[in-house]
Each structure stands twice: as structure tokens, then as C-alpha cells.
């Protein structure tokens, strides 16, 4: 049980310089989740259009693991088809249950060390719970008559690539 397995540099980097932190003007769904045991709070906003996650942003307060995981999530799912984002969530969950780190996870693979700290797994999953909830809500909402939402281009806010 080495702390360095948990607090990897890339995790601390996301914690201190969160990507996609903020709000979306054209969010299709916003999911507020809250870890009742530790008080961590997270608001995840998703812009879902044409079956794709166009953008994801988050705000909230929490520990390094929950915030880094949220930050990484917003980068990882951006531009992904909904089905692929859900698959990613599933892979991430499996990794935290002791499964291997799938290749496509990118920075998220750095959270694999959380497996050795069972009390912290919930922290890492908070944002992913929000994602799954949000995507299922977006799926329910989606209907063909829905107004076209202007697709925002890179707005130059920190973290948007």
C-alpha cells in the first residue's frame, strides 16, 4: 500500500489544474451528485447532441481523487458517441474493481492505484455515476423535434482544447 500509487503526479495535476471546470451554456443535462459519507459535491453538465457528448464541464468540491477523476472524465468523454462514453464508464468501473486498465482510458488509467485504497473508490466513481445518470437522462429527453442547439466552438476557457 504505497501512497505514491494513489497520488500519481497526473492526478495531482488534474486536481490542481482542473480541466473543463465551469458551466455549459447549452447543457442538455446537469447532474448534481453528492457523496453523503464525505460531503463531496459535484455538478456535471453535459451537452449531448446527435448521439454524441459534445462537451462536459464540472464544478464541485471534493478530495483530490474525486476532483481529478471528474476533470479526467470531462476530457475523456468529450466528442465521444454516447455508447462509447458509457463503455468507458464501464471499463473504468471494472478497473476500480481490480480489472485491468483498458488502453483507451488515457489519464484515467492513473486512477488504477485507487483499487488498493478501498475506502477511496467511491471518490473516484462519483463523476462517473453522474455521467451515467446524465446520459440516461439525456437519452430520455432526446427527441427529434428538439431545437438545434448551436454547437459551441472552442471558447478559449482554460482546459478546453
Amino acid at each position: 500500500m504505497s501512497l505514491d500509487d494513489l497520488y500519481r503526479q497526473v492526478i495531482m495535476d488534474h486536481y490542481q489544474h482542473p480541466r473543463n471546470r465551469g458551466h455549459l451554456e447549452d447543457a442538455s443535462v446537469a447532474v448534481a451528485l453528492h457523496n453523503p459519507s464525505c460531503g463531496d459535491e459535484l455538478l456535471l453538465e453535459l451537452a449531448v447532441k446527435d448521439g454524441r457528448v459534445q462537451e462536459a464541464r464540472f464544478t464541485g468540491r471534493g478530495c483530490s481523487i474525486s476532483m481529478a477523476s471528474a476533470s479526467m472524465l470531462t476530457e475523456a468523454v468529450r466528442g465521444k458517441p454516447v455508447a462509447e462514453a458509457l463503455k468507458m464508464a464501464e471499463n473504468f468501473r471494472q478497473m476500480l474493481q481490480g480489472g485491468p486498465a483498458p488502453e483507451n482510458l488515457g489519464d484515467l488509467a492513473s486512477l488504477q492505484g485507487v483499487v488498493k485504497f478501498p475506502m477511496r473508490i467511491k471518490c473516484a466513481l462519483l463523476a462517473w455515476d453522474a455521467l451515467e445518470k446524465g446520459l440516461s437522462q439525456a437519452g430520455e429527453k432526446a427527441c427529434p423535434a428538439r431545437n438545434e442547439v448551436q454547437n459551441e466552438e472552442n471558447d478559449g476557457r482554460p482546459g478546453s482544447k
Binding site: 501512497l3 459519507s37 464525505c38 471534493g62 478530495c63 483530490s64 481523487i65 485504497f117 477511496r120 471518490c123
Partner: peptide, 19 residues
Amino acid sequence: HPHDLATVLDAEGVAVRAG
């Protein structure tokens, strides 16, 4: 964050609560 703090304290054998 107190959670992070508690994890590091635990690695030293010190059990505290965070939350």
C-alpha cells in the same frame, strides 16, 4: 482535503475520521 489527509495519516498507522 480531509479525505486526502486521512489517507496519508492512515499510511502512518494513524486512524482518524474525515468527513
